[in-house]
Structures are given as structure tokens and as C-alpha cells.
Design a protein around this nucleic acid. Structure first.
Length: 522
RNA sequence: GGCGAAGUAGCUCAGCUGGUUAGAGCGGUGGAAUCAUAAUCCAUAGGUCGGGGGUUCAAGUCCCUCCUUCGCUACCA
């Protein structure tokens, strides 16, 4: 009955503390995961940290610390971020876990058994200072004929023993797969880039390193560690049990969606599928490359000093305000711009003024005029029917459709339209005036609004889970109707007849103010 | 250089396979209302849909070209 849904974020590289981009990805993925749960799917949501590789090792050495020690600390920040931001992950995976090493070695052996690994030499222009290889075309000539990397550091021709993966063998199979599965890569613009890249020809991939040892040891070649991406990508399957035939593994693989940043699309749409093909495993159904967040339209970078700490933002504006802003303001898949002004404006307009105030004014009227008891419905007028229909349609049809398409900003746009309709209805019906002229009509109006507000709160749970839950709790809405299938069912009358009484309503969406200190790190 | 994306009201953006007077939010302006977090509602603000050319009965919406911005063009992740 309930179809499994497996979704992942990218496995973050904890070379520094999490930034707003990590938070954005986690929040977006969480909204999708929560939506699917409310939509009746059995969800597995995996996130985690990719802790191997040269950079972690270098960073730790630079700090004079044990790499493992640094990894422990940095990974904990990412996990803490998820907890703070209400990210409903099922597994937080670390590539340093023993089980992950086992899984990585298992997939390695599968590639090897399939004849896709061979030992050779990797030759190229290597910069000792950057500890990276560069393509001939990237180099520039420095003084005295010294070749320089794009960073301006000297490079020298270097030869290193390395295991290679026969990526070239998968050129055509990948293209065939893309053609046969048009929904595999999204958005389309990313897909075009990948297809062109693969059509341009694939070279075999160096998948082991001997220059450092912070990684997963290559089976049978103990002086080699696996290329970090091979190891990192394997998280998606080790998280649910691979190579063991666990219940989760059987249920959830292949993944429904990998949510990743647009910068790592290639690893997920070329290397990962090729590895899986070689290992004889099914491929994920979709890879979605989201855009980047820009600070006032500019890239965030340490040198510009405009890097935003998501924890600081959450504390300043509130977790749900941040979640709402990011998902409402940024069209998922495209780049988006962030600024404190934009957050304050958007959240105040939508959550505080429109929705929050709608709930507050309605519940206050019920609290004052009905002693907190839910009013009875004395026959609906056409206006009531129209509103109920509009809200019902938005909640049970339009929003789910947009969520299925991963169009969270559009889901919220239609949600707001329903909120506007409710506010317009309040003003036209003027229940405060009906109190004296037609108390029964007032009750019907308030009951209608109560139903609509509850449905709107149910619908928006994936975006702002904390405040939506508090509101639904205040309203006494039963747990079992807090989903898309049952939001529109007849739960109101039983609740009212059961004698439920609301307490003095408290505001859930405070109006935000711009931080006094301008030019601070936000 | 090659490939790709974007350029729509003051601001942020919607506009799918071409079709009535080009839309929304925010902001601005003018009203209404006072239940509510001074929140809400109604009306409105005359943007050559980057420039030019073309296809069509009809084009932000297709084709060509030019301009501007951005991304990708593999082994740091």
C-alpha cells in the first residue's frame, strides 16, 4: 500500500562548519521527505558527512590535530545543524564508520570482479602546494618557462601508481540510460550539461591514491586508499545496509531522489551510475541539482566575508521562518538570493500578517464569543461553500501536485492564495458584527474558518513543521487527520461535539525585525 | 572557443506544448474596516516582455542574429 520513498541529501564534506548552502539543502530535502510521509509513503531520509580525502587530512595537520578527532568534531556540527533545523533524517551517516568501510570495499570488489578496475600509472601536472593535478590546458606559463596552475602555484610532471575505473566503457550505457529515463536528471538544464559532457567522451577514472592514507583502504592494495567520491557515493547504499541484504536495503534501494548541489551533478549523474552499473546494482530514479544561495546577489565566499552561519540565522529569525523563506523565495533548482531584509519582509508578510494573523483573529473570536468551544455549523451559505472548496482544492490537490514536482515555492504560492481567500472571507463576513445581529451565522462563519485554517496548517507542515504542529495542537486537530488524504474529511463535527475547547490563542508567527547591527555577519 | 542557462512592472519573480485587454507578491497611491500580531480587505499604479530581423491569421512564448550576466568544459571536494 505505502510505496517506499528513499531520499538523500549530498553527503557533506565537513572541511568547515556548515554554511547556509548546507542548511538550504537539508531543509529542502526535509520538506520533500515530510511531504511524502504525510502523503502516505514510507520514507527513508539519509544525510551525513563525507570525512575522508586529502583536504580533511590537510586541515587536521594544519591544526596539529588527529584527523579522526577533527572529523568527529566537524561532523557533529552538521548533525547539530540538522537537529536544530528540524531535519527529520532517519540516518545520519559518517563515511568513517566501520560499516561504511566494509560497504565501500564491497562495492570495490564488485567493480573489480566485473573487470572494471586495473592498476596503472596516473601521470599529469601536479602542484605540490595545491596537492592537485591540473590539465595541460589549465596551465599558464610563468617565469623561466615554469608552468603554473590556475592558482599560480608551480606544477611538475608527476607519475603515481593508481587504480583506474573503466569509465570509458560506460559512455554508451550512460547515454542510453539518460535517453531511456528522461526524468533521471533534473532540472533539464543540468541534464543538458551532463549529456554533452558524456557525449564528449569519457576517460577512465583514477580511483585510488597513494599520496595519503586518510580513507578507505583498497582491498588487496593496502597502500592505496579509495578515491573519496567512490567512497562518499557509496554512503547512499551503505546507509541502508549494503552489502548486507537487510530489510531496509530491499525496501529502499534504488533511491527515489538524491538531492544535491549543482556543483556536484557530474559525480552523481556520471560516476555514480557508472559505478552502480558496474556493480550490477539498480540506479537511483532521480538526481536533482538545486541552485546556490547568493548573498544579495553575490556569491558567498570566505574572502568576501559574506558567509552566513545558518545557526545564527535560525536563532535570529526562527527555524520555521528560515525554512519558510528559503522554500518560498527560492525556486527549487534555480539560484536564489538571500538578505536579512528579504527574510523579514517575506516572513512578516506571509506568516505573521497573512496566515498568523488569520489564525489569531479567528481563534480569538472563537475564544471570546464561544467561550472557546468550537462553534456549530448552522447550514453553509454559498460563500462558505466557495471558500471550503477553494481551500480544499489547494490543500488536497494543488499543493500535493506541486510537491510531487519538487516545486515547493509554487506549493507555497498557492497556499498563500488560499490564505488570502480566507482573509477576504473574514472581512466580507465580518463575524464580529454578526455577533449581535445573527449569532448562528457567526458560528457558521467561524466554524468554516476554523476548518480552513486547520487544513492550511496541515498542508504546510512539511515547510514549517514546528509552528504548524503547535497551531494544530492549539486547535485540537486529531493526529490521524493531519495528512493530505484526510485533511478534508469530516473531522470537525466530532471534534466540536466532543466538547473540545481552545485556550487563549497565542501568536505563533511573531513579526520579525531587522537586526539592529547592520553590516554584521548576516 | 564549445555547450548550456538567464535578461518580463521600482524590487523579487510566475508565465507549460504560440491565441481574449502581459500576471503575482512586496513597495507606492486612494478608499473601507476595527475581530486580530497597527495585522486585514477593496481599488489602482499605463512594463515597447534585453536590441534587431524573420515564420505565422496570431509570439515573452518558435527561428536567426547581436548585446549583457552567469554556469559547465573531469579526477580538491
Amino acid at each position: 500500500m505505502s510505496e517506499p520513498f528513499y531520499i538523500t541529501t549530498a553527503i557533506a564534506y565537513p572541511n568547515g562548519k556548515p554554511h547556509i548552502g548546507h542548511a538550504y539543502e537539508a531543509i529542502a530535502t526535509d520538506a520533500i521527505a515530510r511531504f511524502q510521509r504525510l502523503n502516505g509513503r514510507e520514507v527513508c531520509f539519509v544525510t551525513g558527512t563525507d570525512e575522508h580525502g586529502l583536504k580533511m587530512d590537510q586541515t587536521a595537520r594544519g591544526l596539529g590535530r588527529a584527523t579522526r578527532d577533527l572529523a568527529d568534531e566537524m561532523s557533529s556540527y552538521f548533525k547539530q545543524m540538522c537537529v536544530t533545523l528540524d531535519i527529520s533524517f532517519d540516518h545520519f551517516c559518517r563515511t568513517t564508520a566501520d560499516s561504511h568501510h566494509t560497504a565501500s570495499q564491497a562495492i570495490w570488489k564488485r567493480l573489480e570482479a566485473n573487470g572494471d578496475l586495473y592498476l596503472d600509472r596516473y601521470e599529469g601536472w601536479y602542484s605540490v602546494r595545491d596537492e592537485a593535478y591540473y590539465d595541460e590546458a589549465e596551465l599558464t606559463d610563468g617565469e623561466g618557462g615554469q608552468k603554473l596552475s590556475p592558482q599560480g602555484t608551480p606544477v611538475e610532471w608527476t607519475v603515481e601508481e593508481s587504480w583506474f575505473f573503466r569509465l570509458s566503457k560506460y559512455e554508451q550505457p550512460l547515454l542510453d540510460y539518460y535517453a531511456a529515463n528522461p526524468g533521471f536528471m533534473r532540472p533539464d538544464s543540468r541534464k543538458n550539461e551532463t549529456v554533452k559532457f558524456v557525449e564528449g567522451g569519457l576517460k577512465d577514472l583514477s580511483v585510488s591514491r597513494t599520496s595519503f592514507d586518510w580513507g578507505v583502504k583498497v582491498p588487496g592494495s593496502e597502500n592505496h586508499v579509495m578515491y573519496v567520491w567512490l567512497d562518499a557515493l557509496t554512503t547512499y547504499i551503505s546507509a541502508i545496509g549494503f552489502p548486507n541484504d537487510t530489510e531496509e536495503w530491499r525496501k529502499f534501494w534504488p533511491a527515489s531522489i538524491h538531492i544535491i548541489g549543482k556543483d556536484i551533478v557530474r559525480f552523481h549523474t556520471v560516476y555514480w551510475p557508472a559505478f552502480l552499473m558496474s556493480a550490477g546494482l539498480p540506479l537511483p530514479k532521480m538526481v536533482f541539482g538545486h541552485g546556490f544561495l547568493l548573498s544579495r546577489g553575490e556569491k558567498m565566499s570566505k574572502s568576501l566575508g559574506n558567509v552566513v552561519d545558518p545557526m545564527e540565522l535560525a536563532q535570529l529569525f526562527g527555524v520555521d521562518a528560515l525554512r519558510y523563506f528559503l522554500l518560498r523565495e527560492v525556486s527549487f533548482g534555480q539560484d536564489g538570493s538571500y538578505s536579512p531584509e528579504a527574510i523579514v519582509t517575506r516572513v512578516n508578510a506571509d506568516l505573521a500578517n497573512s496566515f498568523g494573523n488569520l489564525a489569531q483573529r479567528t481563534l480569538s473570536l472563537i475564544f471570546k464569543n464561544c467561550e472557546g468551544y468550537l462553534p456549530a455549523i448552522h447550514g453553509h451559505h454559498a460563500d462558505d461553500q466557495a471558500l471550503l472548496e477553494l481551500v480544499g482544492n489547494v490543500v488536497s490537490t494543488q499543493i500535493p501536485v506541486h510537491f510531487e514536482e519538487l516545486a515547493m515555492s509554487q506549493a507555497l504560492e498557492t497556499w498563500m492564495q488560499a490564505v488570502f481567500a480566507c482573509n477576504a472571507y473574514v472581512d466580507v463576513q465580518a463575524p464580529w458584527a454578526l455577533k449581535k445581529t445573527d449569532p448562528e451565522r457567526m458560528e457558521t462563519v467561524l466554524a468554516t474558518l476554523f476548518i480552513c485554517i486547520a487544513q492550511l496548517a496541515i498542508a504546510v507542515q512539511p515547510i514549517i513543521p514546528g509552528s504548524a504542529t503547535k497551531l494544530l495542537d492549539q486547535m485540537g486537530v486529531p493526529q490521524d487527520v493531519r495528512n493530505y488524504a484526510r485533511a478534508g474529511s469530516h473531522w470537525f463535527s466530532p471534534l466540536a461535539e466532543g466538547g473540545f475547547q481552545i485556550a487563549q490563542p497565542t501568536g505563533l508567527f511573531p513579526r520579525l525585525e531587522l537586526p539592529a547591527e547592520e553590516g554584521a555577519s548576516v
